[in-house]
């Protein structure tokens, strides 16, 4: 198992945001975490990415306890995260943004060496940019990009860490309905090319979930309500209406494409 969440609870004073949650994520999986607002998705993501320590339980990544380890340690271990709201460095160019991640990955934290002449960092940035269709925008500042390009840059910079596991929080939020499949295809292509072992997808959109995930974890009121493959999940209409409110339009077998 790459990632194991074992009996995790998280309380904020009176409120129990997570209640004895156990999930495991193995290689070649795309695990969708779904649930209504307030079900505990964000808290779970924050605990999994080591931003929050759990009140009880353990989070193991590659067998190591990462509870409260923080984002930097996680990036080193091989887990990356992209946020729901677009996060970029407005004054940095696309090339510079991707270099930030490459510097961390390659451990080039030097003070005097010239970044401009580091061909390896430059090449890594150009490769990622071309996967994410940003090759023509390498020298544009993030603030000059369109909303869609910003989203791609945000995710691309997380991929530039060459993580083993990537956690995507609604990667298509803010992207038009017609573009969301294109964005997902880019993400999955990138994951294949960069050898990412598994993806955790926090998603509202049932169409995307049914089409792309290999497993669905449904949360409700801080508990795991279901942990099923999409076919079984969507076969249970009571469960679907309870968690998602409605069935996806393109209900059916789905594509179920694993990462590798």
């Amino acid at each position: 198992m790459l990632l194991e969440v074992k009996h995790v609870s998280k309380s904020y004073e009176q409120f129990r945001a997570l209640d004895d949650v156990s999930i495991s994520v193995g290689e070649r999986e795309i695990v969708a975490i779904i649930g209504p607002n307030g079900a505990g998705k964000t808290t779970l993501v924050n605990v999994v990415t080591g931003l929050l320590g759990p009140s009880a339980g353990q989070v193991l990544f590659k067998g190591r306890d990462i509870a409260g380890a923080g984002p930097v340690a996680l990036a080193k271990l091989g887990m990356a995260r992209a946020f729901q709201l677009v996060q970029v460095f407005p004054a940095l160019t696309v090339r510079e943004t991707l270099s930030v991640a490459s510097i961390s990955r390659l451990g080039r934290r030097r003070m005097f060496s010239r970044l401009l002449v580091d061909a390896e960092i430059d090449k890594a940035g150009e490769e990622i940019a071309s996967i994410f269709k940003l090759a023509g925008r390498l020298d544009a500042k993030a603030s000059e990009l369109s909303q869609g390009e910003k989203k791609l840059l945000d995710v691309a910079s997380a991929f530039a860490l060459n993580p083993e596991v990537i956690l995507l929080d609604e990667p298509t939020s803010g992207v038009s309905t017609s573009d969301k499949y294109a964005v997902m295809e880019v993400l999955l292509t990138a994951a294949k090319l960069k050898g990412i072992k598994s993806i955790i997808l926090v998603e509202h959109d049932m169409e995307l979930v049914s089409r792309y995930s290999t497993r669905i974890v449904a949360l409700q009121e801080g508990r795991v309500l279901a942990d099923l493959p999409p076919r079984k999940f969507f076969a249970n209409s009571d469960l679907v209406s309870l968690v998602a409110g409605r069935l996806p339009r393109s209900q059916g077998p789905g594509r179920n494409n694993a990462v590798h």
Partner: peptide, 25 residues
């Protein structure tokens, strides 16, 4: 102009994002 300089600018621009990209803020 060094890697450190770029990490500093990344922290100035958005320290949460920088941390998730492995920058030791």
């Amino acid at each position: 102009r060094s890697p450190l300089g770029l990490h500093l600018r990344a922290v100035r621009e958005n320290k949460e994002k920088a941390a998730y990209l492995g920058v030791e803020v």
